[in-house]
Simulated assay, not measured.
Amino acid sequence: MSRTHQPIWRSAALSAAAVCLTLTALTGCSSGSSDSGHKSTGAASTESGSDAGKSTTTGAKTDAKTDAKQPAPPAEVSIPSIGVTSSLLQLGLNADRTVEVPPADKGMTAGWYTGSATPGEPGAAVLIGHNDTRYGRAVFHDLRKIHKGADIAVRNTLGKTAHFTVTSTESVSKKAFPTDKVYGKTTDRALRLITCDGSFDAQGHPVNNLIVFATLR
C-alpha cells in the first residue's frame, strides 16, 4: 500500500446539523504490511507525516461538561457477537476538512466522528475503525462477520449504555459511497459502523467500504 494517506470517502455534498461537509470514501486499510493512513469524510486527505491521524474534535461537539445541553460523548463500543470491545477516540476534522480516523498505531481502537450524532440521540452516529494496518489486524477486522439482529452496545462517559440492533450491512465501492444514506439527516436514533472491505487494488488499497447499519433498541 502507498505510504501516502488516501481519502476515505468518495466526494459528495452533505448538509447536516447546519454544517456542510464534502465526504470522501474510506481507504487506508492495507493488506497488513504497508502503511495505513486512513482518511475519512470531510473533503480531501492530508499527507503522510503531517497531521494525519490526529484525534481532535475540530468543528464538532464539545465536552459535555462545558455545555449542560450536550449529551455525554461515547466512550466504548462493544460487539459481543464478533468479540469486539474498544474504547473510542474522538475524531474531528483535519485542516483540509477531511474527517479524521484513528492513527495506524491505534488500529485496535475505533473512533466516533464528533460531527455526527451522539450515539443514542436522534440522527446518525458514525463509528470508524480500521480493518488492517501496517501493524496487523485492527479493531474492525471481523466486522464482515456481523449479522442482522446482532447487538452493538455503546457506553458513554457517564456509564450509560445504548444498545443498537443491526438492521443491515452493505459493501460498497469507494467510487460510489452512499454519502446521504450514511450521513444524511434522519429522525431515527441510528448507528453506522464503517471500515474497509473487498479486494485490493494495484496499490494495496481495499476497493470497498463495509457499512453496518443499526438502530437503537
Score class of each variant (00 low, 15 high):
P74S: 14
A75L: 15
A75W: 11
A75V: 03
E76Q: 15
E76W: 09
V77K: 05
S78Y: 02
I79K: 03
P80I: 13
G83C: 13
V84K: 04
T85W: 11
T85R: 15
T85L: 11
S87N: 14
L88C: 08
L88S: 05
L89E: 03
L89C: 09
L89A: 09
L91Y: 08
L91R: 06
L91T: 01
G92A: 09
N94P: 11
D96A: 05
D96S: 08
D96W: 12
R97M: 10
T98K: 11
T98W: 14
T98P: 05
T98I: 02
V99R: 03
A104W: 04
D105A: 11
D105N: 15
K106C: 07
M108W: 09
T109S: 04
T109V: 14
T109A: 03
G111R: 00
G111N: 01
W112V: 00
A117T: 04
A117C: 12
T118D: 00
P119M: 01
G120T: 09
G120A: 14
P122D: 04
G123M: 12
A125F: 01
A125W: 00
V126P: 01
L127P: 00
I128D: 00
G129Y: 02
G129M: 04
H130R: 07
N131R: 12
N131V: 07
D132L: 08
D132W: 07
T133C: 11
T133V: 12
R134D: 12
R134W: 15
Y135L: 08
R137F: 13
V139P: 03
V139G: 07
F140D: 02
D142S: 15
D142F: 09
L143S: 08
R144W: 10
K145R: 14
I146V: 14
I146W: 02
H147T: 13
H147C: 10
H147A: 15
H147W: 10
K148G: 09
K148D: 12
G149N: 13
G149H: 15
A150K: 05
D151H: 08
D151G: 03
I152M: 02
A153S: 13
V154E: 01
R155L: 03
N156S: 13
L158R: 05
G159H: 14
T161F: 07
T161R: 06
A162H: 07
A162K: 04
F164Q: 03
T165P: 01
T165M: 07
T167N: 11
T167I: 12
S168D: 15
E170C: 09
E170G: 07
S171W: 11
S171N: 14
S171G: 13
V172G: 01
K174A: 07
K175V: 08
A176T: 14
F177S: 06
T179L: 07
D180Q: 11
K181W: 05
V182S: 05
V182Y: 02
Y183F: 11
G184L: 09
T186W: 01
T186P: 02
T186C: 06
T187K: 15
T187E: 12
D188H: 08
L191Q: 04
R192I: 02
L193H: 05
L193Y: 05
C196W: 06
D197V: 03
